[in-house]
Design a protein around this nucleic acid. Structure first.
Lengths: 224, 224
DNA sequence: CACTTTCTTTACTTGTCAGTAAAGTTTTCT
DNA sequence: AGAAAACTTTACTGACAAGTAAAGAAAGTG
């Protein structure tokens, strides 16, 4: 007597299992290398059942790519009342912890590798991933500019600079070399350096902010 | 009566044709999606001939990836006697023109997409591509620091910053969205902004260098 | 020019994979 | 409970792909 009938319940459950299996197998073997039999088996179902839920391999692939998009890159909401420097640190670590996760990197490799054959998937990812983060970052930076804490002409470029400074180096490396797990220490080195460079170029009061950053870094270091 | 016999000549010619065909087909279809028949046909040969030159699909793939590595990322040699700002511009454009070329991007997508299954290929690319460029950039930046034109503590981080500032944004976008050809204007916007930010953070005389940059930019603009 | 060696092809073998037909099972509704 | 609907499975088809055997063509050599 549920709102959701037992049928519907099973349906959703199996669909989720299929999508999870798909993400795993596709990420592991690539689109062409993945087999529908293997995906079905991974989900504990048979191939015709899979075809009952998704009409083709392509459809499954696209459905699988649509699913995680929603949740994977939530807009960052800066904690109010905190200092600029602390917020930049929070922001950097929030995205570093998402973007550098092995499963996230696998998915990124898959999207990039298949971008030729699935241009929609690549574009949708760009729209709902990087571009969404960028938009959030921009509004944050503009707010800081309004408070005369930062100075720049084009918010978009400032946001791109921030992203490029903190994460492009370790992420590109991780995309090329899958096994090299980037430790938190190495990541911290890039992030701290990136924020330092960003503040030097964009802060209205670099000396104070750099001192603030140094203090925040040693505080974080101590609490570990 | 050549040094190179006609046999050897044919051999090399066919090998090159096979490697070119392989690069084309693999980049287009991915490793699993590419077929040895298609590669052979693309080279104007038959499949057993292909197998005469390369023992397996894997071997062909790895040989194909080894070939372009050598030439694709030549170390940048800064023109002597030029100003720091001009050299940074030269450097940025030299790599932008390489890295953003459609065929180069296709290759990068392939490498990233197959990094899971071919970790050696990914690592070798990182070593002989990005890391080699980074090393060249580092020696250049250190030379500039010795002349008191730049200031930084760790050359590696400064070099990563430069790279991240000028090319990470357009390149990541291009990796995700293959068809969106990034125009020279858009590229110039990123590069000029990246160098501006870099100079603000690293120059010993930012005002002068930024003025120099503005002049160099309008000069380039005029000659077009 | 004949003969040997190397290279190249046509014609297979074996295995795998996307997708489906038809039969069997579970759930829902009366 | 029993009929009807929705779901799932076993068992298959046709196509294509990696790799090979054996015959055929092209070079180099005496």
């Amino acid at each position: 007597m549920n709102q959701i009938s037992r049928r519907e319940q099973n349906r959703l459950d199996k669909q989720n299992r299929l999508l999870s299996a798909a993400i795993k197998v596709f990420a592991d073997a690539g689109y062409s290398g993945a087999s529908m039999d293997v995906i079905a088996a991974e989900a504990g179902l048979s191939k015709p059942t899979l075809y009952h839920y998704f009409p083709s391999k392509e459809a499954l692939f696209e459905a699988m790519m649509a699913a995680p998009r929603e949740q994977m890159m939530l807009a960052f909401t800066p904690a109010p009342g905190k200092d600029l420097v602390d917020q930049l640190l929070d922001f950097a670590w929030a995205y570093a912890d998402t973007v550098m996760r092995p499963d996230f990197l696998s998915l990124a490799r898959l999207i990039i590798g298949e971008a030729h054959r699935f241009p929609d998937v690549g574009r949708d990812y760009q729209d709902s991933g990087p571009d969404k983060v960028l938009a959030g970052l921009m509004t944050f930076l503009i707010a800081q500019r309004d408070q005369h804490r930062l100075t720049f002409e084009e918010a978009e470029l400032a946001a791109e600079d921030f992203w490029g400074l903190i994460l492009s180096a370790p992420r590109n490396r991780a995309l090329h070399v899958p096994n090299a797990d980037i430790s938190q220490e190495i990541l911290a080195r890039y992030i701290h350096n990136g924020i330092r460079t960003f503040l030097r170029a964009y802060s209205t009061n670099p000396e104070a902010d750099l001192a603030r950053l140094a203090k925040a870094i040693s505080a974080r270091h101590a609490e570990k």
